[in-house]
Design a protein around this nucleic acid. Sequence first.
DNA 1: CTAAGTGCAAAATGTTTGCATACTT
DNA 2: AAGTATGCAAACATTTTGCACTTAG
Lengths: 137, 137
Amino acid sequence: MNSRSQYKTKQREMLLGYFEAVPGVHVTAGDVCNYFKSQEASIGQSTIYRHLESLVDEGIIQKYNIDGNSPACFEYVKPNSHKDTEICFHCKCEKCGKLIHLRCDELKAVGVHLNGEHGFQLDPVRTVFYGLCENCR
Amino acid sequence: MNSRSQYKTKQREMLLGYFEAVPGVHVTAGDVCNYFKSQEASIGQSTIYRHLESLVDEGIIQKYNIDGNSPACFEYVKPNSHKDTEICFHCKCEKCGKLIHLRCDELKAVGVHLNGEHGFQLDPVRTVFYGLCENCR
DNA sequence: CTAAGTGCAAAATGTTTGCATACTT
DNA sequence: AAGTATGCAAACATTTTGCACTTAG
């Protein structure tokens, strides 16, 4: 659950570079593995999985579970979009797959409510609202 | 995606009985398998998986994917309960992994708000709130 | 030098499928 | 009799782990 890398290794830099090159795009662990398999400098799959976990813990990428059977998706998080003052909620369309980013005070109230009434401290970074977007309804 | 059973078999009746006996409780496919393994009249796991799919399609049980790695959860849906008041929201503790299910009108307001203000039709079955539970904060 | 990182292959997990047999209608 | 349902074992896909080896600090 808590794994951050401490060494700056070639593999970590390559992974970071990969994610930085595709901001706002979802990739699966398999996508990453395939990409590096097709490069001359490849990375073992366990290393990829281990780094994905670290990068999530470090807040550099985000992990989404679209549904139970398909593989998890990862997305690069731009460093300056992470400030507390602009909490960003995510809505994912179950049909077209579109990811919508919302900055909304009323949604922040959900967190306050969960905290006050149910003793649950919401993590807006990890929580994704699933449903249907405007076009797909 | 569309599989409804047409025959009334012993196995189907046993499964139905099992779910009706534990309304409002989440069970995984594995839980169901284990339960029936400990009974003298057991059911094969493929049969269980196939019936779970049918029962979901028939609206008799609901399926939740809490996160990508843990198994899907199933819950019996009481036939005569008016749906709107029975919407169940899920909170998952990121630390201890505890799953809390809430039936809360104020959370329903989130769906209304997303719909009205953001044109997004929330799917409460699929959406899981991540955060920290009372004990882990 | 030492702790951390790597990568292979194997294990673990949860779910699905092929197929011969048994059951419902 | 005809078409489903069953259940075993094997296949599957994704992710995790054990362990010997390498590397960063």
